[in-house]
Design a binder for these strands. Structure first.
Lengths: 232, 232
DNA sequence: CGCTTGAATAAGTCATACCTTTGCGCCAAG
DNA sequence: CTTGGCGCAAAGGTATGACTTATTCAAGCG
């Protein structure tokens, strides 16, 4: 999954540093310096820089050096960029963006899922809805989170749209982030759990409007909570 | 914008070949072969392969070679991957996915824009709505396309959500693709143009519901047309 | 004052040598 | 005949030195 080897390590050092603003826009990174600072060879430095270039986070220019590009140019949909931003300074901005994205995508995915889901999807959704109810009652936050992530992943996958499906890790990262960082309510709200059941039922019943409405309520609620609790 | 130099050329050869299915899942690429086939050095091959790895299109494994990963693993939001797929065999599937994505995102973006757009945004939107009307009447498809792309880009940007804003190139690619490939109506439909004016007016008037509704009608119409005219 | 030209610099490329991991076959023991 | 481990070889991974190319900057010339 991760980039392997030394270039991966270098990437794990440079990416977060850039994403967090520690290396702000316009900073020049010279290959030779990176070699020495990190004790690796040119080969390694070049490969790491190439990857950052493909994410549009840096731009190598001859006779000048490799300069950090403005944040607006970055490939904000790249999973690594998202992770780095979530770990760093503009974690709040990233969560807000992702929140809005969820509000747009997940209801549409739920509606599609109500049309396209196969029997396995429906079974899995029903089972996960039950699990959510149980773990919420038991106030088992860890298990609840896992099932919540799985639930949204199944909805996204069942939509039959590959691009929606690929947002599962992103949504998972958001859910994980909010459970870890700001404290979820000591036990998940019964209302939220009920909405998840509603989504599962609507998808199983093949009712797109109901599925979409319930899912929209879920993600809008999450976004509101986010806005209410985020610091800046 | 593009990846530079020899690695860029190699990438431009490998990426489309993989995206089009010419090099199907499981194909092994050996570094030495790539060197000879393309007349480049190890360095170049490794950098290109690294980038493909970061897109999760290939997976290098020692003693085995670099194998092409299943399509489901690819980073489908990466602009290069999108472009390659649009140019290749599953152009239809890609257009469908993007169509659904637009249906989800653009109405939400329009609603946000009606809340967040600044005066410059509103002015620009109004101007573009006029341009659209004029070029549509003149049946100047090329100019119409350019303004259409600009229009949607402004809405996405005015939403204030960086992730939405970054979808502008993607949306642009879709619009370009449908104009180029399948033949748009000889002159843009007056109804569609009117809807664009409606979106612009609603955003200028700060009416999120109206903006969202009009935009949804636009992208739903585009998706229907797509489904109707796509081959497979 | 502006244009040209050249030198310095940093990235880009190549070739080579060597390291590290790992799949697979061979052989021996059960 | 099966099974386990040992070792080789194949392929990617890393390091390095030499060289190329593009680009900036400035000095010098018209």
């Amino acid at each position: 999954m991760e980039i392997q080897g030394l270039p991966g390590r270098l990437l794990a050092a440079l990416g977060p540093a850039i994403a967090s603003g520690e290396l702000p826009e316009g900073t020049v990174l010279r290959a030779e310096e990176l070699e020495q600072q990190h004790g690796v060879s040119r080969t390694v430095v070049r490969e790491a820089v190439r990857i950052l270039e493909s994410m549009r986070m840096v731009e190598p220019r001859r006779r000048v050096g490799t300069t950090v590009r403005p944040k607006a140019d970055w490939d904000v949909f790249d999973p690594l960029v998202i992770r780095w931003r979530l770990a760093g300074a503009d974690r709040s901005a990233q969560l807000r963006s992702l929140g809005s994205l969820r509000v747009a995508v997940e209801p549409a995915a739920a509606a599609l899922a109500a049309r396209c889901a196969d029997d396995d999807d429906r079974r899995e959704l029903s089972a996960l809805a039950v699990e959510l109810t149980v773990t919420a009652r038991a106030a088992d936050l860890e298990a609840f989170l896992a099932h919540d992530i799985a639930f949204h992943a199944v909805v996204l996958r069942a939509s039959g749209n590959e691009m929606f499906a690929h947002l599962k890790d992103t949504v998972g990262a958001v859910l994980t982030g909010r459970t870890e960082h700001r404290l979820m309510p000591h036990r998940p709200r019964e209302y939220a759990v009920q909405l998840h059941r509603e989504v599962a039922e609507a998808i199983c019943a093949g009712d797109p409007e109901r599925a979409e409405r319930a899912m929209r309520t879920i993600v809008l609620g999450a976004l509101e909570e986010l806005d209410a609790t985020l610091p800046d």
